[in-house]
Simulated assay, not measured.
Amino acid sequence: MKISVIGCGRWGSFIAWYLDRREHEVTLYGRASSSHLKRFREERTNGLITLPETVQLESDLGKALESEVIIISVNSQGLRALMQEIEPFKVRNRTFVLCMKGMEISTGKRLTEVVEEYMEDTSAVAVWLGPGHVQEFYRGIPNCMVIDSRDEKVKERLIESFSSDLIRFYYGNDLIGNEIGGATKNIIGIAAGMLDGLGLSSLKGALMSRGTREISRLIEAMGGNVLSAYGLCHLGDYEATVFSQFSHNRKFGESFVRGTEYTSLAEGYYTVEAIMKISEEHHVDLPICRAVYDVLFHGKDPKETLNSLFVRSLKEEF
């Protein structure tokens, strides 16, 4: 299969490395100005991943779009701008696979909805979600992930082509639930990091339990399957997001409450703003997401705000 990966950051470069191992014809695309692409061209490595010579490096978007499968791994808030760049090429019969987890702040749309605005009717879109960190995959530590799409044939083809002993893919059957679950687990990750930074790590068990229930209500309100929150897209990704030393969102939350600078991308920061808009539209109470939002965007005291989550009025657990 001829595959192009758009986005040569940490995750995109891993995907190129992984799919090359699956014996696909892989091209990794980055802008000509990309420092990541420049380093790969000079050294074939970014410090985490070393790409074999069989992975082609490309800075010409038109050439990258010649592949039948286009995997996108960019900042979620930059997806629309990328699709606007792709639209003039009028590519047909392509499969777009999104490997990011987030929501568009300006519209509150899921990322597949953004892509569908620009792709031709003959093309399809899928999502690749679930737990796992580049550092662990590259060392040969396996994990399970999920691929979902409204197009059953596309989903089946991708899973059969991408599955290996390193990543076992499951068939998703709820695109709404999987996208929302994947995006919001980053918010829970930030909350977990805040608890770590405040010395309240023992509350992370309660955070996981209540967080999953909270997101399941949102998924249900949006027309998805309530059980999706308990699958690989959300609860199944908690170990990698809530506890792992490699979790950007957890580390961002910890750094934030400690007042230290953190410069890596934490998608949950952007997602929580979009989720607040969606929760109002669907009239769903999201106390954990609201607490994270209030701390990040309204200057609320982290310890007081997070503590208040666990001393709310007495109520039934379920």
Rank of each mutant, 00 (worst) to 15 (best):
E85A: 05
M208H: 03
E104H: 14
S308Q: 13
I215N: 02
E23N: 15
S202C: 09
N93E: 09
I176A: 00
K204D: 07
C233F: 05
E316V: 15
D148P: 01
L166G: 03
A16M: 13
A274V: 13
I105R: 02
K303I: 13
S161C: 01
E281H: 07
K315S: 11
T45E: 08
F246V: 01
E261V: 13
L158A: 07
L227D: 04
S35N: 10
V97G: 13
K109D: 15
S308H: 14
P88W: 13
F14E: 04
E120Q: 10
I176V: 14
R150A: 02
S123P: 09
A229N: 04
V97Y: 14
F252K: 00
L82T: 05
T260L: 03
I288W: 01
H282A: 06
V91R: 11
S123C: 09
A206G: 04
L265Y: 12
K155H: 03
C8T: 14
R21E: 09
E116T: 09
E239N: 03
R213S: 11
L19V: 15
T122C: 02
M83L: 11
K303L: 15
C144F: 10
I215S: 01
I187Y: 08
M222G: 11
T212G: 03
S247A: 05
L198M: 12
L200G: 06
D121G: 00
E117F: 10
H133C: 04
E42R: 10
E179Y: 10
L48W: 09
S67Y: 06
E273L: 09
E43K: 10
V5L: 12
G224Y: 09
V125Q: 03
G199A: 08
F243E: 04
V292K: 02
E280M: 12
F297W: 06
K204L: 14
I288T: 06
I159H: 00
A192F: 12
K155R: 15
S67W: 06
S149L: 10
V272N: 04
H24C: 08
F89S: 04
E113M: 14
L51Y: 10
V292H: 04
R22Y: 10
G177T: 00
E179M: 11
A291I: 02
M194C: 12
I275D: 01
L166F: 02
M1C: 13
G199S: 09
I70F: 12
I188W: 01
L51R: 05
G140M: 04
L158N: 03
G182T: 09
L286R: 05
S123A: 04
F256Y: 14
L200N: 00
N75G: 07
